[in-house]
Computed example of a mutant assay.
Amino acid sequence: MSFTKLFSIVSLLSVALCASAQSPPANRPTGGSICTTKPFLVETVLPPNLNDNGGTPFPNKTFATYPTYTALSVGVQNYTCGDAGTWAPAGAITYLYDISCLPLEHHKPFTSFIAGLWEAAPPSVTADDIVSWTESMSPGVALGIHYWVADPVNATSGKIFAKWDFGASERMTNDTHKDHAFLVASESSVVPDPFDPVFNSAWLVEPVLVVDGQKSGELADQVFRINSNGGQAPNTTCRPNFDFLQVKSTLDFLFYGGHWADTIF
């Protein structure tokens, strides 16, 4: 069976799950998740040993009781070769789509299944293709794009910060506030992946970056990055300041607070 046909079957399964979920009210404001996220309590799906393996621990509570958005992220983590001949993180580029119609406890296995498809995909298939195929099966699930930007406070610091942008999402088409549907965040918690830290990228808590007293976007006030599949650089040497590497990555983001928090029904 071809990769395209296999992914189409998975997409149809996702559509069926969405169809069986609670439907949003007809007069609902634009901008929020497709299905309600009020039952989603992330502490019920976090492993009990999450903070046992070093790093900066996850907090006991989230910014808000339930997330405004839950997103599946499919793309690549980028690495450059540092002076020591080892791989150094250089941001990411991933595409996001709404998985709010799946129960929270199903997010991890669904994300792992999509990760298997992404890992098996031939080089001609991009993360954008995966989102496009899913969007064709279930219009409206595409949320936006995730990438990294230069330090907004000090452009010469060499630091980079995560950014999410939902401004071009179908959900935002008629939203008068869509120009603010982005977020630049810092990192307050970083822990190794609790299942396979050698292969999977770290789990993070990322609060909105505040610059000169202003939040850097209104998409959310806090993001949890969990359920990582892949993303870590291999333990190999490289040619300093010459080699560049992209590692496939699939994971979940939960966005808390922000301008669209009151659209959740």
Rank of each mutant, 00 (worst) to 15 (best):
D179E: 12
F244P: 00
D165N: 10
Y97H: 10
D193Y: 03
L96K: 02
G54P: 12
L12M: 13
P89E: 00
L143V: 06
V45F: 04
T62V: 09
C101Y: 04
Y69V: 08
A21D: 13
F63N: 12
G82M: 00
Y95T: 04
L13D: 14
W148A: 14
L12A: 15
R225H: 03
Y69R: 02
F110H: 08
H107R: 07
A71T: 08
P57W: 08
C238M: 10
D128I: 08
Q222I: 05
N235C: 01
P57C: 07
A168P: 05
N200L: 06
D83V: 10
K163N: 04
L204P: 00
D175W: 13
P29F: 12
T56H: 09
Q77K: 11
K159I: 06
P39L: 00
D252S: 15
L251S: 15
C81D: 03
N27R: 10
V153Q: 13
W118N: 00
H259T: 09
D175Y: 11
P139R: 06
G31C: 05
P48E: 13
N51P: 02
D196A: 11
D129R: 09
N174M: 07
D98V: 03
A142L: 05
S20T: 12
P109F: 10
L219T: 01
R239M: 05
S228N: 08
N229D: 09
K38P: 01
T237I: 01
Q214G: 04
L245R: 14
T176H: 10
Y66T: 07
Y147E: 12
L117K: 01
N51F: 09
W164T: 10
A84V: 10
I93M: 12
S228Q: 10
V211F: 03
F113T: 15
W87T: 01
L72M: 14
V125L: 06
A150Q: 09
I93N: 12
D83K: 09
T250R: 01
G85Y: 04
T80R: 10
E206W: 06
F58W: 11
A181C: 04
F242Y: 15
P234V: 07
R171F: 03
